[in-house]
Amino acid sequence: MTTNPRARARSFDAAAALYAASRPGYPGGLFDAVEELTGRPLAGARVADVGAGTGIATGSLHARGARVVAVEPGDGMAAELRRAHPGIALVRGDGDRLPLATGAFDLLTYAQAWHWTDPARSVPEARRVLRPGGALAIWWNDIDASVGWVADQGARIRALFDATDEGVAFRTLPQGLDSGFRTRTVAWSRRVPLDDHLANLASHSAFLLLGEPGTSAFIREERARLAPLFPDGTVEEPYVVSLHVAVV
């Protein structure tokens, strides 16, 4: 399986509907923390959500009153975003080449997306499009591996891909931003049917690149392992969002 970030990023387009249907959203506390760390409300703020995917974060930012523009390079993901959020502006591009005006934005957000960029390009682009005093917000929403069954599942996934830290090893915060990053973590959970939990797993790039036979075999085995743990067929997925904000 390739570990090339570009190939992994492109893998989502063919599974955009699965991604939109099964991926978790974000808790309200995350957006409260964004407002706290940026020092301004989202309502009325000019925001670009970069690597917007199917619009999971974009829609939440819009609901908080932000004047949000989605930036998404992938055909399949952009199509899902347009379907789900027809009233939100969408431009095609990525963080390395932002198709946005200079000094026009109060906030750039990267929800699960910064690791697909080249910081040598994306940091100067962030500086360019943000107004003085604007902020860059980067976050990742990870299932909480301190919970026993989650840790066990993670070990099985790492063994499948022969990886020590599948999915997070290539995440690095950029250097050289004026204020440095301030960080908050937000714990939350969602209750979903077991099939939705398994579909969420299958929507991750490692499984998309593994291919249908290998993914289906793993999902069948995982369903058999988890069914006795969740006899009513409902899984409570625990998450921790790691938010990082720098004012530039």
Rank of each mutant, 00 (worst) to 15 (best):
G176W: 12
R6I: 15
F31Q: 01
R83Y: 06
A78G: 14
G25H: 00
V47Q: 02
A101P: 07
A163V: 12
R220L: 12
G87V: 11
L18N: 06
E35C: 08
V69R: 08
G87H: 12
W149M: 09
V248L: 12
I219W: 05
R220D: 10
L90C: 13
A151N: 06
P41N: 08
A84Y: 04
S205I: 14
R121K: 14
A84T: 08
D142A: 06
L198P: 03
L160T: 14
A16P: 08
I143K: 05
A151F: 04
P228T: 04
L136M: 14
P24D: 01
D49G: 04
G211Q: 03
H197M: 09
A126I: 05
A145R: 15
T172C: 00
A169M: 00
H197W: 13
L210T: 09
A101G: 13
A224I: 02
P213Y: 09
A14M: 00
M77W: 04
G28K: 01
L177T: 03
H115A: 09
W114A: 02
D75G: 02
V34R: 01
A163H: 15
L201F: 11
R184F: 10
W114Q: 03
A9I: 11
G53T: 07
S189E: 08
S205T: 10
L226K: 05
L173W: 10
Y19A: 01
A104W: 06
E36R: 15
A151I: 07
N141Y: 00
L61Q: 06
H197S: 06
F105W: 07
A84P: 02
P5V: 14
F161G: 05
E72A: 09
A43E: 12
L130R: 13
L160M: 13
I157V: 15
T3H: 13
S179I: 06
A227I: 01
R128W: 12
D118L: 08
L177C: 04
I88V: 14
L194D: 03
A187Q: 13
P193T: 03
G134P: 09
L177S: 08
A14D: 04
F218Q: 11
Y110S: 04
D106C: 08
G29D: 07
D13E: 11
D142K: 06
S179W: 07
E36A: 15
A135H: 11
V68M: 01
P24R: 02
R182C: 09
I143T: 10
L194I: 04
P41V: 14
W114I: 05
T234R: 06
R190S: 04
V34P: 03
T117D: 00
Q112S: 08
A217D: 15
H197I: 00
G44T: 12
W139H: 07
G167S: 09
F218H: 12
W114G: 02
H197V: 00
V247R: 10
G176H: 13
